[in-house]
């Protein structure tokens, strides 16, 4: 999960008064680990994750002047990353493995993931979710984003994010056997 104390420190930083280099250094220090975790999960390949991250940070550097508030930095960076990922995915699609076919124990240990069965089951449960539910859940769990922030990044309404998260967790719990049958009403999107 995200280190909240670190995040609070970050939020107090006044970016508009700061030297561009210092701003960039802070961005790397504060967010590169979370972004790498997200990148590896999305790319399913270490080299590709590193490549997309490097390109994303380079793009971030080039448009760093447009970033004024530290509290917006993470969402801003993740948005750049997602765009770069989409761009590279389009270009190098042949290098990607299909999400559904991924995550054998071998893949997990190759990527450095926890290879205990419980961890493996959780990752597989997440992969079984439809993309529209999986994406906001990944952002909330891996990126530590709020519903409003996810709404901004995905360019959908907050209520739509809430609905997708509701369905995502409900489905996860069913897959993991924490909830046997639907018991709750579904909030309309």
């Amino acid at each position: 999960m995200t280190d909240l104390s670190n995040e609070n420190d970050q939020e107090q930083v006044n970016y508009s008064m700061m030297d561009k280099k210092r701003k960039y250094a802070l961005l790397i220090e504060a967010h590169s680990k979370d972004l790498y975790k997200y990148a590896l999960w999305l790319c399913k390949d270490k080299n590709m994750a590193e490549d997309v991250m490097q390109e994303a940070f380079l793009r971030a550097w080039k448009s760093l002047d447009s970033l004024r508030e530290a509290k917006a930095a993470k969402g801003w960076l993740f948005t750049i990353f997602r765009r770069e990922h989409a761009r590279q995915f389009e270009r190098k699609q042949f290098q990607y493995k299909d999400v559904e076919s991924m995550d054998t124990i071998e893949d997990s240990s190759h990527m450095g993931y926890d290879d205990r069965p419980e961890a493996f089951a959780l990752r597989n449960a997440l992969k079984k979710l439809p993309e529209e539910y999986r994406e906001p859940l990944e952002m909330q769990v891996l990126g530590g984003f709020s519903c409003d922030e996810i709404a901004g990044i995905l360019d959908i309404s907050s209520s739509a994010v809430m609905t997708r998260l509701f369905r995502a967790r409900k489905k996860m719990r069913q897959i993991l056997g924490h909830e046997s049958a639907p018991q709750l009403g579904v909030v309309g999107e």
Partner: peptide, 12 residues
């Protein structure tokens, strides 16, 4: 569940 999911994806 969220915490376990997040730590299942922890990587160096």
């Amino acid at each position: 569940m969220d915490a376990d999911l997040s730590s299942s994806m922890d990587v160096e």
